[in-house]
Design a binder for these strands. Structure first.
Lengths: 332, 332
DNA sequence: TTTTCGATTGCAACCGATTGCAAATCTTTT
DNA sequence: AAAAGATTTGCAATCGGTTGCAATCGAAAA
């Protein structure tokens, strides 16, 4: 079907090595043979078989990109960034959509079968042990949006979720709210746990403030909406820190059902600052997570691990900041 | 680094062929040797190198999944479905994010270098010639969301966009609107063109109805919002058919800026029926596009092409239907 | 017990590349 | 013009598997 090295060599009247060398950076070929080879290659429409060469070089440039987060719109941005960043560096993303049905260990095996050079785990709702499984299998791995404290063996890129919880708490305090709540993501997500911890730790110093909390089923609109509808059945707090913008937007929808105006009747602060939060109709006050920097850095790290596989693991943590919009009441 | 066939053979005390055969479906191996091999493989943690075997078998199970649509939230649903459907069949998605900077021909070359078994082009904003480039290069290709009329050589799966335009027109007529408009996607998208054609053809029979149209810059919230803000500067129509839900949602945001209530002051009907359209705060009347069926069918088709590469091209068209929600006024 | 025949097995070539090494070629230097 | 040194080149082995073919095995048939 496709043209091979051998045919090009035959047409150009040189050895197969010569052809191989003209297509590998920095190999020793004279200008003359290179010209001959390039002419023949062009004529036949040859381009080297990346997989065949991976056999001898041991490099496929394939990077496993694993996530289980296909219901939070922020992840469209995440995939956009990841695929671009990888492509720009000549790496190819091999996607794994980890659903509840798929056995995680299968994906480890599968990615090894395809000899991926490295793996990026993009999720905070997967257990640290998952990323570690790749490390144990000898595959370089970066856990983006992971938690460093419980994954000392693995490279982690993300934010300080505890600090974000604190930041949200301080922001609510500065607005003079007297009773506040945390509406978090799924309880097994490290991000949800850490944000909770920071939030309550910060508020622990203020004994006059009432603090409530709950965890939703997932990082999704529906889950956020359902949880807020629940809360509205009882006596809700004056303001909520939602553990993700999509939860916030679900919560906002619930508020609107009850005829409540966010920022006036009930305060909401989210986390992520996704595109949708900027929409005029949403106008969500939120904590900006620097997605782009996180992803660029993750891919940088992947590249560096390719050069130096035994690299000592590190955590790259990016600071977040509050973006003020319309869903919290003004400072007193 | 990783365990090879040879080592397993050595440990099991059999030939390399025997090992290979125990791992290939339907090969001739006795129960006894199979047992020995499996024991040795387990002990060493062996799993076959998919890429090495692809060299001789000519099959990689890699499927190129190409899109340029990373800003329309519906595509998160699309990627979710595609990746799952492919995984379920043991196929691996190799993603290509086609941005404006990337030369399309590069992606053709790249996917050939990785010997993908087939390619799925998932976009209506790419020219038919793009999908054809793969066909010409001898790579089986399915154009999902493509247009069959101008791509007779290529398999197409999608909807009848002209008919959708008609459907939207009929729906608006049935609500008694006397002046209507089409707010379409980018003019170079075949979907935008076809929807426009159906819409105006249907309305051509009603000379008493005023018809306007425009095309937006992209299938995105911002583009829809910007276009509707423009329209509101002049004298807008009574109702609009927006060529995609995300355009509709952008348009709704513009209406709300002007204090206009959708369904009351101005009617909006979208197309896609994405998750967000069901949100109570959006409540968009729209034409449902059966994404799940389209994608399942696309992947089915891919599988069939793997068996029969020279398969005669076909177009698989799925019917759409109007989903009534709150952004059109009631029938008179 | 020998013959026959189908099932199993191993040999060796091959898939499409890369690469160490020694031979061949081209430049310089003397 | 010959020797020394620097480049290029091709041979052949290798990467991790698959597979056609001939040899071997085992069990049923004679």
């Amino acid at each position: 079907m496709s043209v091979t090295l051998k045919e090009v060599a035959a047409l150009a009247g040189v050895s197969r090595s010569a052809v191989s060398r003209t297509f590998t950076e920095g190999a020793s070929v004279s200008a003359k043979t290179r010209r001959k080879v390039e002419k023949a290659a062009l004529e036949l429409g040859y381009s080297p078989n990346a997989l065949a060469s991976s056999l001898t070089t041991g490099r496929t440039k394939l990077i496993g990109l694993i996530s289980n987060n296909f219901h939070n719109p922020i992840f469209l941005e995440v995939f956009d960034q990841f695929t671009r960043a990888l492509q720009e560096r000549g790496l190819r993303p091999l996607i794994v959509n980890l659903t509840d049905e798929t056995e995680p260990s299968n994906s480890v095996r599968m990615l090894r079968q395809y000899s991926v050079d490295a793996v990026i785990v993009a999720s905070s709702t997967l257990p640290p042990s998952f990323a570690k499984a790749f490390h144990d299998a000898g595959v370089p791995v970066v856990h983006t949006f992971g938690r460093s404290a419980t994954s000392p063996e693995v490279h982690v890129v993300g934010i300080d979720n505890v600090e974000c919880g604190r930041m949200a708490a301080r922001e609510l305090l500065s607005r003079g709210y007297r009773s506040v709540g945390y509406l978090g993501g799924p309880q097994n997500a490290t991000s949800a746990q850490d944000r909770y911890r920071g939030f309550t730790e910060e508020l622990g110093q203020h004994t006059d403030i009432a603090v409530a909390h709950c965890f939703s089923e997932a990082y999704s609109f529906e889950a956020g909406r359902a949880k807020m509808l629940d809360l509205l059945k009882g006596s809700p707090a004056e303001a909520y820190f939602c553990g993700d913008d999509i939860l916030s937007i679900g919560a906002l929808s619930a508020l609107s059902d009850h005829g409540l105006t966010p920022g006036k009747d009930i305060g909401i602060i989210g986390l992520n600052d996704m595109e949708m939060s900027r929409w005029e109709s949403v106008d969500l006050t939120t904590i900006h997570q620097p997605i782009k920097q996180i992803i660029t850095s993750s891919v940088d790290l992947v590249e560096e691990m390719l050069k130096e596989p035994q690299r000592y693991p590190e955590a790259r943590i990016f600071p977040c900041r509050v973006i003020e919009r319309g869903t919290l009441r003004p400072r007193p």
